[in-house]
Amino acid sequence: MNFHTRKWIKPEDLNPNGTLFGGRLLEWIDEEAALYAIIQLENPRTVTKFMSEINFVSSAKKGDIVEIGLEPKSFGRTSLTLACEVRNKMNHEVIISIEKIIMVSLDENGVPTPHGKTQIEFVKDRLAK
């Protein structure tokens, strides 16, 4: 799993219990998965279709730094399936894990469209072509 994005937990990210609000964390995960899929599929019209069971393992509090990790699992004809894990940057304790996030490539009419990808590509390799 590659961890690229880090978030600093601020007061506005907390729930009434004083820990990270789950909805805020899911917002960050959804955005990160979308950005990853858009870059991989080279289509800005890529959307979230499905998230499997979300497992909240531990919490985070104000001042913690969390990092979001994504790992590609498979390519479908119109989709990319990812796994996600969020952990505390300082102690590597897992905060949340999601086994499956399915992102779908859409055409200009909002209809799923084949993307033609079969493996992960890195932008630096595309630029070298």
Rank of each mutant, 00 (worst) to 15 (best):
P44M: 11
C84H: 06
A33P: 04
V86C: 01
K62W: 09
F50Q: 14
Y36C: 10
V123M: 09
L127G: 05
M103P: 02
E93D: 13
K62C: 12
F21E: 13
P44Y: 06
Q40T: 03
M103Q: 08
I98V: 02
V86T: 10
E85Q: 11
T113D: 07
G18S: 03
D30L: 06
L20G: 07
E42P: 13
I120K: 03
F56T: 09
E71S: 14
E67T: 07
S79K: 12
I101C: 02
G69N: 00
E108P: 14
G23H: 14
G110C: 11
R6T: 15
G69K: 03
H4P: 01
L127I: 09
G76E: 04
L82P: 00
S58G: 08
E67M: 08
Q40R: 05
N109I: 12
K62H: 11
N43V: 11
K100G: 01
C84Y: 00
N15A: 02
T48Y: 05
I95P: 00
P72E: 03
D13K: 02
G18T: 11
K61A: 12
P16T: 12
C84R: 00
L25P: 01
G23M: 01
E67G: 04
L70C: 06
A128Y: 09
K61V: 09
T118Q: 13
E42R: 15
A37P: 13
G18F: 02
I9D: 00
R6F: 04
S58V: 08
R126Y: 04
Q40Y: 05
H4Y: 00
T46H: 14
I102P: 03
S105P: 07
S105Y: 02
K61H: 15
A34Y: 08
L20D: 10
E32R: 07
L25D: 02
A37Q: 07
G69C: 01
L70E: 06
A37G: 08
R87K: 13
E85V: 03
L20V: 15
S97Q: 13
V104F: 05
R24K: 11
I102C: 08
I101F: 02
A37C: 12
I101P: 02
I96Q: 05
G69D: 00
N2W: 12
K100F: 01
E93L: 12
R87A: 04
D107I: 02
L70V: 06
P11F: 07
L20C: 11
T46C: 12
E53C: 15
K89N: 13
G18M: 01
G18R: 04
R45E: 14
V94S: 00
N88M: 00
S105N: 08
K100V: 07
K49Q: 15
T78W: 01
F122S: 08
R126T: 14
G22Y: 00
N55I: 12
V57I: 06
S59F: 12
N17A: 11
P112W: 03
N91A: 06
G76Q: 06
I96G: 03
E32S: 08
E99C: 04
G63L: 10
H115N: 03
T118L: 12
F21P: 07
T118S: 15
N91H: 01
V47P: 13
N15D: 10
L14N: 10
K124L: 15
P72V: 07
T5N: 09
K89G: 10
W8M: 10
E85D: 03
I96W: 11
E108I: 10
V66F: 07
S97M: 11
T81S: 11
